[in-house]
Structures are given as structure tokens and as C-alpha cells.
Write a protein that binds this DNA or RNA. Structure first.
Lengths: 245, 245
DNA sequence: CCTAACTGGGTACGGTGTATGCAGTCGCAA
DNA sequence: TTGCGACTGCATACACCGTACCCAGTTAGG
């Protein structure tokens, strides 16, 4: 890891003197996202991006001081920004938020783990957070209450999509080979009779549909959230701020 | 990735002929877990483990055909197994499950991302799944309903812990440096006045306590789950199996 | 006892992120 | 107009990674 005097978003993209840069952070990130979407995040290497751009690997370091900064820019560009206005129906708004987020994460299968494991502060992400918190605003909630709900939804969607993608990752022919390898092991285990629920689970897994699973989880989540919001609304505001944390 | 005729759990540990092995899968995994816990998962390399064991890197490949299998064994050993009997109070049982899982994930900060991103089938993990599903058993739920609830809790705990760890990762002096780097950027953003909620969030973040955030999220989640379970209990069983999926 | 099957482990290959250095290009001050 | 300093693209090089290949030494079964 090189020294890094300040965050990538504070670094000016263009400088005063010298020849005009041939590339840009966004262009590099776009290429990297293309590779990651098509071949997985591990296929993204500096040399590979450079080849795709027709240049040398070290050129990229004129734009991004370290690979971690490449990830930072990739993440923010992949997240993007999609506006959403509150409709007054919090449940519907949160459901829309969840589905939109899921769509984004599924478009870029490498994205969810990154969002889960780093503090993300890119401009698109921050604008998105502001937009999402606004969905919960205007009803006298303490900011911490809003954050609890917001984080609950975001966190769950992220985890649910990771689980979806993990299950479906060995796709096509690979999936068949995977079952071939796994089959005997599971058969051996289930034959012991010590895993009745697992047995039922494996049978049912054949019919599991990701969309349905997501909607079921979301419904349960929203039930809890709406109950919580109703409970808070039933309390007077000063008492809420006190007791909620 | 080398060829891999079958899953690691099906490979016999000892063989008939030849000298007795000097190490074992579990011993190697234990060393690897020690390194990962202390210095992060990226510090775990074959050469590093071998050095810790006082041997050569290639020796490890006598026990584990590839690094992915090392991860597999590490995960299962780190997860371990802790028994839990149903008490009859589903809410309390699920809360206990969630807290136990959180404890496990926090003991091994590298663990949560692994659990989120792979299908995990180690013996400890499978025994744990069986144990957790049993908490929901005996009340006429369809297996898919049980899985929805189980996955909801597991997924959320996993995501919540990842978020906790991501926030607290720059610890101690690093955290201060991080704030030094981040401060000007955030100040600049907030000065635009376009991020009122973010501003409130950053103020409040000073007082955020991870335990409290976890318990708040868990409470909301359990509210939703109990409502869902009550709704199912109010339906007759055959209709439930039909309508639930 | 011999031989086959195993063991530990050295060497080597192709990959990675990135530090360093160098030649060419441009904007600005004199 | 000239030159200088700040920038550019980029080749080379280094340390580290996972792991394929090889070989010598050890041991149990026929």
C-alpha cells in the first residue's frame, strides 16, 4: 500500500502543466467494471485493464494511486444514482428501495461483497444514502431510528443477494459437475438419519425461486419495520428520542 | 485451480502405505485461523503457514489440494458447533441464535464474508443448520417457510456483523488518520447543504454503539418474524403449504 | 525383503501489485 | 522565443503469491 495523502475523491483529476491525460478515472473504472461483470472480480488486474486500454500497466497509476482506489471508483460508478421520491407510503417506498438495490447488486455480481466490507463514501453512494434516508424523513423520527431501519434494509438486501449469487455461481455445466462431486457426500450424511431437516431442505431447494425468496424475506422485514414505526408514532416525540437509544 | 476429483470432506485423511504424516488438516487450519484472526485473511499464505509450522510450502499440498480447500477447512473449524435446544419460545430461541452467530463472526473477523459468498457444506456448518432449523420445527411449518425465516436471520446477522467490522476496521491510531483524511472531504460535501440527513448521521455516529444497533435491528426483525409465524399458525396446515410458495 | 505408495520439500513458472526511472510533451514565466 | 519544471506514458524490476513438477527418503503389505 503506497502513501496516500488524501482520499481519492479529493484528488484533482486534471493538473495544470504537462500533456493532456489520455485516459480518466471513469474510463478506467468502466473498463474494470466490464471485466468484473463478465469474468469476475479476480479477473480485474492492472495489467489486464491496461491491455484492454492498449497501454502499459503503470500508466494506470497516473490516475489511481493504488488498486484499492480503483475499487473505490468502480464501486461508486457501479452503484450509480437513481432518484426516488417519497410517496407517503413508507412500506411501499422501502420495498421499492430494496428492489432497486437488489437490481443494482445483481447487475454487478462482484459488488455486494465490497459494499458489505468497506465504509463506502463515494459521491453516488452518499447521494443515494441521502435519498434513502429522505424516504424515512418528515415523521419525527430520531436519526438513529432512521439509521436502524435503513441499515436493516440495506444490510439484509446485500446479504440476501450475496446468498443468491453464491448459490447460483456454479452455473450451467459447472453446476452439474458440482452436484456430481457433492452428491455422494450429502447422500452419505443424510443416510445417517441425523439430519432430517437438511434432507427436507435439499429436496425443497430444487424448487427454490430467488425472486420468491426475496419477496418473502422482504415481506417479513417490512412487517417488523411497520410495527416498529407504528410503535414510535404512538409515543410522543421527546420520549422517543430518549428511549430509543 | 488443480483438478479435484471430490470434495475435501470425502478425502480420507490418512492413507495405507508410507510414513505417518507429520501434520494434519486441522492443525494446518488452526495455524491459518490464528494468522487470519491476528493479521487478517490476506496474511494467510501457504508459505506463511508453512513457516509457522517449520516446514516447506509444498508440504501443505499433501493435506489440502488447493487453497480453496484450506479456506473450506478454516471456515468449518472457525464456525465450530455449539448445541442449542428449543425452549418453546421461538422469539427467544431465534434471538439466542442470532447472538451466538454474531459472537462467532466477531471472534473471526474474516469469517463473515466467506459465509456470505460460498455455499458452505462442512460438517460443523451442516450440524449447525440442522440445529437451527430444529428451533423452528414442530409447529407444522412448511420447510420453505422455515428456510425463509432461518435465512432471514442468518443473512441479516452476517451482514450486520460485516458492517460493524467494516466501520471499526481502522482501529486506534489508524482510525484517527482515517478521520484526518476523510474530514475535509465530508466537510466540503456537507457545506453544500445538499445532505441534511448525512449531516445528522455523522453527528449521531459518534454515539453509535454496535451492541445497541444490533439489538435494535434484531428486535425489528423478530417482530416481523413473530407476526409472520402467528399469521401462519392462524391458517390451516394444508392451506399453508399451498399458499406459502 | 522388495516394491509400491506414500512422505517432506526444493525448484521453477506464470501471475500479482507497485517502486523507480527515463524520455517525451506541454503551459507558463522571463 | 526560449527554457524550465511539471506533467505524461510506460519499461524494467522486485517481492510475493498459488501451485506444477520432481526427487530422495520412509514405511507397510505381499
Amino acid at each position: 500500500m503506497p502513501e496516500q495523502e488524501s482520499i481519492i475523491w479529493m484528488r484533482p483529476e486534471k493538473s495544470a502543466h504537462g500533456p493532456a491525460p489520455a485516459y480518466s478515472r471513469d474510463r478506467i473504472a468502466a473498463v474494470a467494471i466490464g471485466i468484473a461483470d463478465a469474468e469476475g472480480i479476480d479477473a480485474v488486474s492492472m495489467r489486464r485493464i491496461a491491455k484492454e486500454l492498449g497501454t502499459g500497466a503503470m500508466t494506470l497509476y497516473r490516475y489511481l494511486p493504488a488498486k484499492e482506489d480503483l475499487y473505490t471508483v468502480m464501486i461508486d460508478q457501479a452503484v450509480g444514482f437513481e432518484p426516488q421520491e417519497p410517496t407517503g407510503d413508507v412500506g411501499a417506498d422501502l420495498a421499492a428501495l430494496a428492489r432497486r438495490h437488489r437490481r443494482t447488486l445483481r447487475r454487478h455480481p462482484w459488488l455486494a461483497p465490497f459494499l458489505a466490507s468497506r465504509p463506502i463514501m463515494g459521491p453516488n453512494v452518499l447521494r443515494g444514502t441521502e435519498r434513502d434516508l429522505a424516504l424515512l424523513g418528515g415523521r419525527g423520527l430520531h436519526i438513529n431510528e432512521m439509521l436502524d431501519v435503513f441499515n436493516l434494509v440495506r444490510t439484509w438486501v446485500n446479504g440476501a443477494v450475496q446468498a443468491e449469487l453464491a448459490d447460483s455461481d456454479p452455473s450451467g455445466a459447472d453446476r452439474l459437475a458440482w452436484q456430481k462431486r457433492m452428491g455422494p457426500y450429502l447422500t452419505t450424511l443424510l443416510a445417517t438419519g441425523e439430519f432430517p431437516y437438511l434432507g427436507r431442505m435439499i429436496e425443497a431447494a430444487e424448487f427454490g425461486d430467488a425472486d420468491e425468496r426475496f419477496e418473502n424475506g422482504l415481506a417479513i422485514l417490512l412487517t417488523g419495520i411497520e410495527a416498529r414505526l407504528a410503535a414510535i408514532a404512538g409515543t410522543d416525540v421527546s420520549a422517543t428520542a430518549e428511549s430509543s437509544r
